[in-house]
Amino acid sequence: MCLYDAPTEVSLRILDIHPACEAKHKLISMGIQSNDILIKLNNPNSGPVLVQNMTNGSSKLAIGKKLAESINVEQHQ
């Protein structure tokens, strides 16, 4: 499933970022990498998704809808 549609407040593992995503390099530089564990903090109707990368530390990242749709994740046990 894509990050945008993923459930909130559960651990999510990043599978990959769609190769056509124009901001792929930026996302990677900002710590969004395959296999990292994220927690999605909000479930927006149209705005950006708010995530916390549990692998990296305490800061949060806001990711626009279109970009969040290009990040594939799975629920992590």
Binding site: E22, A62, G64
Partner: peptide, 8 residues
């Protein structure tokens, strides 16, 4: 392109 923004 869309937003990527760190929330410190």
């Amino acid at each position: 392109m869309g937003l990527i923004l760190e929330i410190p």
